[in-house]
Computed example of a mutant assay.
Amino acid sequence: MKNKILVIFPIKGPLNGVKVITKNLLHHWENKIDYNLIDTAQAKDFNDFGKFSIQKVFVVLHLIWKVILNYSHQKAYINLSVKGFSFYRDITLITFLLMFRVKVTAHIHANGLEHVKFNLFKKIINKTHLIVINDYQYHHLKEYKNIHVVYNSLPDYYHSKPLVKKQNEKLRILYFSNLSLSKGTQKLQDFIEEINPIGDQVEIKICGGILDSESLEICKNIQKYNFVEILDPIFDEDQKMSLFKDSDVFLFLSDENYEVFPLVYLEALMNGLVIMTTKQVVSDLMISNGNGIEYKIKNRPFIETLLKGNKLKEMQEKSRNVFLKISDFEKFSTQIIKIINDK
């Protein structure tokens, strides 16, 4: 027991980036790293993310009991949520771990810790090793002592082999994200209306859970366009990769700098998709090889260039090369293990 790592992360329920990357990491650790898992997932549906309920309080008490049962572990690796009820849950779990003299490594996958003002919480977090996922977070969290930057990564579904993409009759555009106003559903509607005149040359597939009533109305409105298809959320990895591979362009429309390091970027690059993205903390890196553009008010001219000549194929190859350059999952795993082991 003493040599095991206690991993405290959300695993079950509706997928998000944290769950996807953690599942891949734990799969990579099988037969390599000795660990015990405590699953902190509480949301049972997409509409349940970030919302408080009495039932969640009882779940937290159960999680505390699990931590107490595993007090003899020397090291813990925990996801630290930074907003809402989940933040208080994770701080509570970290407090109990520290009480048992467990060395805690906390991984943050979102912005927001810089807004925490309560000194007690800061002191608790300062007793952990803190992993952030981009330079923006690092520079805004300088008050914390043991802070490390580890960029997100994913294992290559194609094992670094050449990716063969078929040429589609129409330009296939994929919007793969949960749907909310902050994640760009209004911009999505504007984009669809803008390219309606060339709708006979494109197909748009929208895949994700609907998070607010406004986005539900928007989805009802855009269904009238015959080149738009709204899919149910996808949880199967092979099915998701097939959807990405069969697509040509990845459309990412979240509010500026709302996202931290979306894994869907890496999934799109892995599958050789041209990237159209709003300005995000890491978006410049995602289109650094001339493999995409920053989303603007008017985007139809760019879509039209992809419908002509070899421009689409050239940019798709560049996207795949960006993924091979920036994503090394073995290195990613090794970095995290070194931080947990304090080496």
Rank of each mutant, 00 (worst) to 15 (best):
L120Q: 09
D328M: 05
K220E: 09
D212S: 07
F85S: 08
D284P: 02
V132T: 09
V228M: 00
N146R: 12
H73S: 14
L231D: 02
Q239P: 02
L97D: 03
M99C: 08
D238K: 14
K127N: 14
N16P: 04
I303A: 08
K123Y: 15
F261S: 15
F118E: 15
K142M: 11
S72I: 13
Q189S: 06
V260H: 07
V116T: 08
N16W: 07
W65Y: 14
I68Q: 01
D45H: 11
V282F: 02
F118L: 12
F121S: 12
G112K: 12
K2N: 12
W29I: 01
F85I: 04
K325W: 00
F87G: 07
N310R: 14
I38M: 05
L307C: 11
I8F: 04
I11K: 07
P262F: 05
L216Y: 08
G209H: 07
I210W: 01
E314I: 15
G84H: 05
K343M: 06
V260M: 09
M286W: 08
I21C: 05
Y136F: 14
F250Y: 15
L216C: 05
L307Y: 09
F87R: 08
N289G: 06
D212C: 06
F329M: 04
D212H: 02
I337C: 00
Y136D: 11
D236V: 11
T305W: 09
